[in-house]
Amino acid sequence: MKKVFSRPESLRDAATHYCPGCGHGIAHRLICEVIDELGIREKAIAVCPVGCAVVAYDYWNFDCCEAAHGRALAVATGIKRTQPDKFVFTYQGDGDLAAIGTAETIHAANRGENLSVAFINNAVYGMTGGQMAPTTLLGQKTATTPRGRNPAGEGYPLKICELLATLPAVASLERVALDSPGGVIKTKRALKAAFINQLEGKGFSLVEILSPCPVCWNKPAGEAWRWVREEMAKTFPLGKFK
């Protein structure tokens, strides 16, 4: 009998701690599939900063480095600059990449660091219990916007792809969504393209993945997927930005 589906070698045989319906588990697996397909597991080094996915090293079967909240791209810069022959990527949440680590994000992108970034935009701070993230939608209720995000004083959702698109050293930027089986396939394709960019020495590539956080959104998993498609994607249009 021919085996048509199995766990990627890059993915450990472990139950994750993620909530039911969470996008992290899917994104993890897609990354592992791509790493396997490109045959780069043995030279892969991931950087996982603080956030729900800080323990991705428990699930990934390759070298991993923890980073302080927001500092993933600085840590990755240190790794990649000293080991340019390795494959180095960061896996960051929106609080991490777009709030506390905004400076690291913009400057790593602006230096054109030859890195790949998986940017998980779930419109909240997951790990700390669903507070407002820079990407929280207008009107969205979170633990720290109990009346819904109000642009007066709380600002507007920060659009990272659009922001980084102005930087000449950035190789590629794409926004995808884990909102459907089709979205999952597109996400994998975008990750693969970004990883190949690095292998070809093209420079900074980022994939923004709109990802469900059913628990903090207070929605059942199916509805959360729909909300990604129908609400998040309105504020964060999908597509290639560079």
Binding site: A74, V75, I79, R81, E104
Partner: peptide
């Protein structure tokens, strides 16, 4: 903040 984190990456290497 970034400089010391870069050092962390190089040291981890």
């Amino acid at each position: 903040l970034a400089a010391i984190s870069m050092v962390m990456g190089a040291s981890a290497s």
